[in-house]
Design a protein around this nucleic acid. Structure first.
Length: 487
RNA sequence: GGCCCCGUGGUCAAGAGGCCUAAGACAUCGCCCUUUCACGGCGGUAACUCGGGUUCGAAUCCCGACGGGGUCACCA
């Protein structure tokens, strides 16, 4: 039988990383079994409708390389793939369940239920819908409906016995019906199905063979199975996934500002790196491989190697992956991606972007660090003369003074048109040798003077080249003053 | 609180009774390379939650405790 998995997000406007990972595993499982990956939008909660939210889902999935075989935009044999457009398909099944005694009309208002609930809880009990409307006669039901009293349809949950099912990750699960089941609402007052109901109906109608979802559904699965059985449908295989956590005690959540796919894209993470990392939170290939393309993941993925315990999302490791992916980028691609970040503080008219990109590529972990790393090129930062002191280079302000004086005429003597790294290198090295100095003793102060900071992308020569003759000389003069004042 | 799940270093994790004086990766620390930083190379610190069993032998099996998470909506 063909494997069919689905990703069924609700359109909230953002793609949660936990959701991205769930989608990823569902995609991988389908593809490695040469099956179909289906996208379904679960928007039965009309109050939560968000403009443009489905586009966010499409866009994210596409950029991640998870192309769906059936979905709202491309259609398919089981459409429509948006639940709000399927409204009419759910009611008949609900009515069928009413007829067979597995469900019933309920006319209780929210307020009435709240009251009864409060009473039970005040008495120290645990509330569960009390089947108040279960035994309404057909006449009573018609009367109430005719009177315009809003109604819902509730599942008539069994109060005894137990339900068992098998999960491909967690193994065999057994629940006492009295504990795990309740008369959950199937059809809401607005006529829309609840998630619980629509999910079951659609998964069946769309031929989903393997249901992948977060482990928070582990304990509600008996209720879904009850529905499948009541409808006479085959229960799908279940693959519940461990939670992605922020730390040991908190889930990744929007409050951290680090839970959404877009958060990471905005910061300058690469989708490939994110996917690669995410795949490894909760799953591992069983060997030491860490780098995977999507195709390699499809090949290597194995449900049996899915973890049961929650995984903490480690930004450190993600960042390392990102840096690795950035280093492996072709030069041109790097420049293309870095350009907007360069533009934040520099202009291509005055800076050799291509060269800057070469220098920056191996130092970039996340693109949002780039502006801060190159800002000194646009403007010499305030710095302390103490920066001229470096024990290993054996420099201090006094040494810097001499070094800068030594170097000034040499640089002044270089023609504007000759201001290239090779020329800079040769002239500088020649004069250093002639003066009998150590490279570091001259180049360290030079770099400090022209950059104003201890750490820069590239050494004195590269920085001088990037800055150009005029600016380099200007900064050296400034540095000289500063060094002098400090001796 | 009831029910369910989980428990190897700071993090991801290998480990499915002896191969474990417990792998690898990230992070961290030190050294080397180097005109800084980074990259790279080398090395170090660091873990089987605890307590009982079972067994000749347990990180691996069982029980309990403890810890953490999940779930108990007309939200998904």
């Amino acid at each position: 039988m063909e494997v069919r998995t689905r990703f069924a997000p609700s359109p909230t406007g953002f793609m949660h990383l936990g959701g991205v990972r769930t989608a990823l595993y569902a995609y991988l499982y389908a593809k490695q079994n040469h099956g179909k990956f289906i996208l379904r939008i679960e928007d039965t909660d009309q109050e939560r409708y968000v403009e443009g939210a489905t586009e966010v889902i499409y866009d994210t999935l596409r950029r991640c390389g998870m192309n769906w075989d059936e979905g709202p935009d491309i259609g398919g044999p089981c459409g429509p793939y948006i639940q709000s457009e399927r409204k009419a398909t759910y009611m008949p099944y609900a009515e069928q369940l009413v007829k067979s005694g597995h469900a019933y009309y309920c006319f209780c208002s929210k307020e009435e239920i709240d009251q009864r609930r409060a009473k039970v809880e005040a008495a120290g009990g645990t509330w569960k819908y009390d089947k108040h409307c279960l035994h309404l006669s057909p006449e009573e039901i018609e009367e109430k409906k005719a009177a315009g009293i809003p109604w819902t349809i509730r599942m008539n949950a069994p109060t005894e016995g137990e339900t068992s099912y098998h999960d491909m990750v967690f193994g065999d699960m057994t629940f006492q019906n009295a504990e795990a089941m309740d008369d959950m609402v199937l059809i809401k007052q607005d006529g829309m199905p609840t998630y619980n109901f629509a999910n079951v109906i659609d998964d069946h109608l769309m031929g989903i063979t393997h249901v992948m979802r977060g482990m928070e559904y582990l304990s509600s699965t008996p209720r879904y199975n009850y529905l499948y059985n009541a409808l006479g449908w085959e229960i799908p295989a279940y693959i519940h996934l461990p939670t992605v956590m922020r730390d040991a005690t908190h889930k990744l959540s929007k409050r951290d500002g680090d839970a959404y796919y877009s958060d990471f894209m905005d910061k300058g993470y690469l989708t490939e790196a994110l996917i690669n990392y995410l795949a490894l939170v909760g799953w591992n290939p069983g060997d030491d491989r860490e780098f995977f393309t999507m195709d390699e993941l499809v090949e290597a993925f194995d449900v049996k190697r899915l973890s049961k315990s929650p995984g903490i999302f480690d930004v450190n490791k993600l960042t390392w992956f990102n840096a690795e992916y950035i280093r492996r980028l072709p030069k041109e691609k790097y420049l293309e991606l870095a350009r907007p970040w360069f533009d934040q503080v520099l202009s291509e008219d005055s800076t050799d972007y291509a060269r800057l990109a070469e220098l920056m590529q191996e130092r970039t972990e996340v693109f949002n660090q780039v502006p801060g790393m190159i800002r000194f090129l646009a403007e010499l930062p305030e710095y302390d003369a103490e920066l001229f002191t470096h024990k290993k280079m054996k420099t201090n302000p006094a040494v810097a003074c001499e070094a800068l004086q030594l170097v000034t005429p040499v640089l002044e003597g270089i023609d504007e048109a000759q201001w290239t790294e090779p020329v800079l290198h040769d002239r500088l090295m020649a004069c250093i040798q002639e003066a009998g100095r150590k490279n570091g003793a001259v180049l360290w102060p030079l770099r400090i003077a022209i950059s104003g900071q201890a750490s820069t992308p590239g050494g004195a020569i590269e920085i001088a080249y990037l800055l150009g003759k005029e600016e380099t000389l200007r900064r050296i003069a400034l540095g000289l003053e500063k060094a002098r004042a400090a001796c």
